[in-house]
């Protein structure tokens, strides 16, 4: 097993292109996961049992089935129903949809962790429901949500190689294509691992820093 810098030099440009796709899929996928997650959280907390329960079961279904199967469904099954998605589109929707069922729990916990007394104080001052949300609840609920949301971003980043299954040429797939055609696995796969480390280790530290920053911010009030 000999390390060849020539292989590294050869594969690097394609891998950098793959990295751009990986970062795109992660960031846009995360935005989808956050937006959809907030909607799911609000629907889950609805007073209507039908809305709340059906949201619960849909979320359970998505969360308890593998992302890989969902990606196949979006990319290979939907065309049978006349819906054609580009590989990257299907990948972003799949990632976003799958992780929205996790982020929705973060939003729900964040909102439910605001003490009842805050809702009651707002009501006693005659705040309207949206004013209560906007001026009282969310300003308290959002800071503690930031660290777990950042952690899901890192998890999504690490899950992006699954998109290779639906022909997205992201970081891993770029390396894989090279490997398969040149029968060189050592350097490309080492580089894949390295790239993931370079991005996720600092991100993890940032997430931990956020956690410390927002932890017990209003401790004495709770």
């Amino acid at each position: 097993m000999n390390w060849s810098w020539k292989v590294v030099y050869d594969v690097l440009p394609q891998m950098l292109e793959g990295l751009v796709i990986t970062v795109q899929a992660t960031i846009i996928g995360a935005l989808v996961a956050y937006a959809l997650g907030l909607i799911l959280a609000i629907m889950r907390m609805s007073n209507s049992r039908i809305i709340s329960l059906s949201t619960y079961w849909i979320s359970e279904f998505i969360r308890r089935t593998p992302l890989l199967v969902q990606l196949y469904f979006l990319f290979y099954v939907l065309p049978d129903l006349g819906i054609f998605l580009e590989p990257l589109e299907a990948g972003i929707i799949g990632l976003g949809l799958h992780f929205s069922t996790y982020t929705s729990e973060v939003f729900r916990a964040g909102i439910e962790n605001v003490p009842t007394g805050q809702w009651e104080a707002a009501k006693s001052l005659n705040y309207r429901p949206y004013q209560t949300m906007r001026y009282v609840i969310l300003p308290q609920a959002i800071p503690p949500m930031i660290p777990p949301l950042a952690n899901y971003l890192i998890t999504m980043f690490k899950e992006t190689p699954l998109l290779s299954a639906i022909t997205v040429v992201e970081l891993f797939n770029a390396a894989n294509i090279y490997s398969n055609s040149h029968y060189k696995y050592l350097e490309p796969m080492t580089l894949v691992g390295l790239f993931f480390l370079i991005v996720s280790v600092p991100s993890a530290y940032i997430a931990m820093w956020l956690e410390r920053k927002y932890q017990r911010r209003y401790a004495r009030n709770h």
Binding site: P115, G117, Q118, E120, A121, K123, S124, L125, N126, Y135, V136, P139, Q140, Y218, N221
Partner: peptide, 17 residues
Amino acid sequence: MRENIGMVFQQFNLFPH
């Protein structure tokens, strides 16, 4: 009706932010 009424709570319930 609430416009007429104000309340102070055992746990203060000030807005911490």
